[in-house]
């Protein structure tokens, strides 16, 4: 097994020290950092994402795999040359105004990071205007809106409207999620996608940036 394959295996197994070690060895041997990311670290998390979706892996296993991936990322990221990016794309995530429930949002953010996205987590109870500011500042590919309460779901629509009014709606793809949210609701408010869980969110975000 090549060292690259061992990194993939190490990420899947959540072997933090081993992934860091192997990454350092590859770097020392002259392998390009971007290659280590793509064919090792992110490739490992892709397998994890697939298994999670099929109920062959579970949340704590995904968490530890993501930690292993980051142990390698921390080594290669500073070595990237200008113009090279370690991330597949940038996603802004938050729960909408009035909603403080962040368990789901945190899980989705973790899965996206694991899949190689740069996640800007704005936190909870984020007003429409703050989303507008954040989109201007971070220039994300995707905006993820989360709501657990039926009473805060209208704030999702307001957020989308504010992005429209600011003239930046079409710069981003918007995905929505949360227990009471549905595909129909997503369509109704003009979102680009609905994700029922973290792995679906990852799939959708990948589609958006491809």
């Amino acid at each position: 097994m090549s060292k690259m394959e061992k990194i993939v295996e190490g990420v899947i197994a959540g072997n933090i020290d081993r992934v860091a070690e192997l990454t350092q060895e590859l770097v020392d041997e002259g392998t390009k950092p971007s290659e280590i990311i793509k064919n090792g670290l992110v490739a490992g998390m892709d397998v994890v994402g697939g298994r999670f979706k099929k109920n062959e892996m579970f949340v704590p296993e995904v968490l530890i795999a993501a930690k292993a991936m980051h142990s390698g990322m921390d080594i290669v990221k500073p070595l990237l040359t200008e113009g090279e990016s370690s991330s597949v794309g940038t996603v802004i995530m938050a729960t909408v105004e009035g909603d403080l429930h962040d368990i789901g949002k945190n899980l989705v953010a973790m899965m996206l990071e694991g899949a190689g996205f740069e996640v800007v987590d704005l936190g909870v109870d984020i007003e429409a205007d703050e989303f507008v500011e954040a989109v201007k500042e971070h220039q994300p590919d995707v905006v993820g809106l989360s709501a657990l309460l039926t009473t805060t779901m209208p704030a999702m629509e307001e957020t989308i409207k504010s992005l429209e009014e600011a003239g930046i709606r079409d710069q981003v793809k918007i995905m929505v999620g949360g227990a009471p949210v549905s595909e129909d609701f997503a369509n109704e408010i003009g979102a680009d996608g609905y994700a029922a869980d973290g792995s679906t969110a990852t799939d959708i975000a990948r589609e958006f940036v491809s």
Partner: peptide
């Protein structure tokens, strides 16, 4: 109740 899977 929060998930034990994300915080033991």
């Amino acid at each position: 109740i929060q998930p034990i899977g994300t915080d033991q």
